[in-house]
Amino acid sequence: MPTTKRKYQGTNNSFVFSNVSGQPVIFRPTGVNRYFTVCSTEYLALGGGGHFALYLDGDLLTGSSATSETYGNSCLAHTEDFEVKEVELWGFVYASKYEEMVSILRTETPGICRW
């Protein structure tokens, strides 16, 4: 759930990627820290340790990307600061939980993340 506190979540199974070069490049956690994902009422960010690998403002209209210690990534976009064209978030659930998750998603108030 979005919160006003800065609390990281996630596991080392997370990753970030870029397709800027025309070839997908995946960046997996370096093990330096556990700053995988942080979701607040003001922003959504992946990575950390000086800079976020990916940062999206709460209105989902602007973002930024820089090298993060978490993923050892280069900038994931053409420029460090950018305007967002489209947001697509994916999540996976066990098949046995599918109907339960669909039911929850139909009743939740829209927001920038659902944990």
Rank of each mutant, 00 (worst) to 15 (best):
Y98R: 15
M1V: 01
T41P: 03
T109D: 04
G47A: 03
G48T: 00
G63L: 05
G91N: 13
G50E: 04
L54H: 02
D57P: 10
S74E: 09
F17M: 09
T41Y: 09
S14L: 07
H78L: 11
E88C: 13
R114E: 05
H51W: 10
E108N: 02
G10N: 02
H78Y: 10
A77M: 11
S64E: 05
E88F: 13
T37C: 14
N33C: 12
Y94N: 15
F15Q: 03
N12A: 10
Y35N: 03
A45F: 11
A45H: 07
R28P: 11
Y71Q: 02
T11S: 14
I112T: 02
C39Y: 05
T109S: 12
N12K: 11
H78W: 11
T67P: 02
I104V: 15
F27H: 07
N12T: 08
E86M: 05
I112L: 11
V93T: 15
V87A: 12
E108G: 10
Y55W: 11
R28F: 05
S40T: 15
T30F: 07
K85F: 13
W115R: 06
Y35E: 12
S40W: 04
S18C: 01
G49K: 06
Q23H: 14
V87I: 14
C75N: 02
S21Q: 08
R6S: 05
G72T: 00
G31D: 08
N33R: 12
F17S: 10
L61H: 12
G47F: 10
A95C: 13
A66P: 09
P24K: 12
G48D: 06
G72W: 08
G91Y: 14
